[in-house]
């Protein structure tokens, strides 16, 4: 943690130094001091935008989680679903978000709807892959043991497979949180009147570059906080995942 802060401090120092020495226009690259000042003067605007974006993320991630769990269970339990649905899931990730974002706005309107859809679209895939990886990593002999104890398919899933897939699901969710922030920004820029992505989009043509950077800083802080929170949840709830290496 302390080392991480030191690295960030060093990068900020280099950035500040570059701005001071190169004479780059602050409309192109504001210095960290300019950004800090924007963070302070625009704090009201940034805070309300943060709440909007965080709300979209929370909703979108919840939808993603539900869809991902359902999809992963289906794919895991049914070979025909694996063959039919999995390729569609992979294909869904190749759709360029900026393209689909503007279409969704036309379709679903300017409020939260399209943002939630886009966040969910980018977020569910890493969760599905994480869960499926966790399920694939189960020792097949453990499955034999459970069968020899008389456990049917669903009971084996509940007692053995679901707990084994939890760490993978959380890893997927950690990745999802970070990339879905980008999804939320695209969605807000495609059509909307609030959120951090909207603030960035408005600030640039007004030559308020420092404000745009300040919004990016807030976005990063949001993603980082969510990521660290999930990591803490993982070590707290799934302590054996921490110890797996030392155990082998």
């Amino acid at each position: 943690m302390i080392r991480g802060l030191l690295v960030i401090a060093a990068l900020l120092g280099l950035w500040e130094l570059y701005c001071a020495l190169s004479g780059v226009d602050q409309l192109v690259l504001p210095s960290p001091a300019d950004v800090a000042q924007a963070l302070w003067t625009d704090r009201g605007l940034l805070w309300s935008a943060l709440l909007v974006t965080a709300g979209e993320l929370l909703l979108g991630l919840s939808v993603a989680l539900v869809v991902a769990i359902a999809a992963a269970i289906g794919i895991h339990l049914s070979r025909s679903l694996r063959n039919s649905v999995y390729p569609v899931l992979v294909a869904s990730q190749t759709v360029p978000i900026p393209v689909i974002a503007s279409l969704l706005v036309v379709w679903l309107g300017y409020d939260t709807g399209p943002k939630v859809v886009i966040v969910a679209l980018v977020a569910f895939f890493p969760v599905v892959v994480g869960i499926l990886d966790g399920l694939a990593g189960i020792d097949p002999e453990l499955d034999l043991v459970a069968r020899s104890f008389g456990a049917g398919r669903l009971r084996r899933f509940r007692l053995v497979e679901a707990p084994a897939a939890l760490p993978g699901a959380l890893t997927g969710l950690r990745i999802a949180v970070v990339i879905s922030v980008i999804g939320a920004v695209f969605a807000e820029q495609a059509g909307g009147d609030s959120g951090l992505g909207f603030v960035i989009q408005q600030a640039l043509p007004q030559l308020l570059t420092a404000r745009a950077y300040a919004a990016v800083v807030v976005l990063s802080a949001l993603a980082l906080t969510a990521f660290l929170l999930l990591t803490a949840v993982q070590t707290r709830l799934l302590p054996w995942t921490r110890l797996r290496q030392s155990e082998q």
Binding site: E141, L142, L144, V145, P163, L166, L238, W240, E247
Partner: peptide, 10 residues
Amino acid sequence: MPQRGLLMPW
């Protein structure tokens, strides 16, 4: 009971 015991780590 398989060779490696196969307990559930969680």
